[in-house]
Simulated assay, not measured.
Amino acid sequence: MSDASSVVSVIDDLRREGEELDRLVEALDEGQWALATPAEGWTVAHQIAHLAWTDRSSLLAVTDQAAFEHEVTKALAEPGDFVDNGAREGARKPPAELLADWRSGRAALDAALRAAPPGARFPWYGPPMATASMATARLMETWAHGLDVAEALGVTPEPTDRLRHIARLGVRTRDFAFGVHGQPVPFEEFRVELVSPSGEVWTYGPEDADDRVTGTALDFCLLVTQRAHRADLALRAEGPDADRWLDIAQAFAGPPGAGREPREHQGTKDADR
């Protein structure tokens, strides 16, 4: 697959991921928009508002870098709060208005990413991002926050091979995960072998690597987006560095995420309430 085809492929999959979540929320009543999700303090409305806010930030990064730099300055003035503030602001809107905002932002970002010139790189809150990287990051967030929405609604989404983009990002962010946790970055590459939803095996890294991770692509993506605790996933690590990685993996930018409690611990907490 050529570089251009690869970029189009991830943008197409980002659009499909957004459409799938859209179908899940389009018919919700006001009470369902207010349902709590696994993210503490966030309702379904907060989840969609966060996606809408991040899509708008991405659109600025792609189309108006001066305006985006202004947003970065605002973020630096309120470290740790600007993401939550964006979600809270959007969640206060009537559901129909929030949904319309998210849809228009998705459409505008889709068009902007497709129009980006080859080799373009865009500023971000971390390192600059290429077009494919920007689309992959948006797909990852759409999928991960969509899982939170689905859990609040008692729905179990069917995994698709769109996870290949998230799995690849999870592998590529290995060194970042070690660094952000203040741990030494392993010198050698790992071997990662993941069974996709369609049954294909996705492989990364040298076949003869001493450290290995094996399991399903779904479990790996749940781990690197911190949507499930390692104890609840059927991932196998061989080698001490690979084992450490599965405790700290994160594919998203920013400080170390808090992650999710094991299901057994969640049940204990619920029983104590």
Score class of each variant (00 low, 15 high):
Arg121Lys: 14
Phe68Cys: 05
Gly257Gln: 08
Tyr125Thr: 12
Phe178Leu: 10
Arg227Trp: 08
Lys269Arg: 15
Asp22Lys: 11
Thr160Ser: 10
Phe122Asn: 06
Pro128Asp: 15
Arg88Gln: 12
Phe187Gln: 14
Val213Gln: 07
Leu194Ser: 05
Ser57Gly: 11
Asp247Leu: 13
Thr43Pro: 04
Ser57Trp: 11
Trp245Asn: 04
Met134Tyr: 03
Val185Trp: 04
Ala27Glu: 12
Val192Asp: 00
Val44Phe: 01
Gln250Trp: 04
Ala111Thr: 15
Asp64Met: 01
Trp102Asp: 08
Arg263Ala: 14
Glu19Ala: 11
Trp143Ala: 09
Arg244Thr: 15
Ala249Arg: 03
Asp148Ile: 09
Ala144Pro: 02
Phe68Glu: 04
Gly18Thr: 03
Ala234Arg: 12
Glu69Met: 14
Asp55Glu: 15
Gly215Ile: 08
Phe252Gly: 01
Asp272Gln: 13
Phe176Gly: 06
Val180Gly: 00
Asp208Trp: 03
Gln65Leu: 02
Ala111Cys: 13
Ser9Asp: 15
Val62Met: 09
Val192Arg: 00
His165Ile: 07
Pro157Met: 03
Thr142Asp: 00
Ala77Phe: 09
Glu30Val: 14
Asp81Trp: 03
Ala177Ser: 02
Asp29Arg: 05
Pro186Cys: 07
Ser58Tyr: 12
Ala253His: 05
Pro240Trp: 03
Asn85Trp: 05
Ala249Val: 04
Ile166Val: 12
Val195Arg: 12
Tyr204Ile: 02
Leu59Phe: 13
Pro240Gln: 03
Glu264Lys: 14
Ala115Glu: 13
Arg56Val: 06
Leu14Met: 13
Ser2Asn: 15
Glu238Met: 04
His46Tyr: 09
Phe190Lys: 05
Trp33Ser: 07
Gly239Arg: 08
Pro184Arg: 02
Ala242Val: 03
Leu147Val: 00
Asp219Ile: 08
Glu30Ser: 12
Gly80Glu: 02
Leu98His: 00
Leu14Lys: 04
His50Asn: 01
Lys269Ala: 13
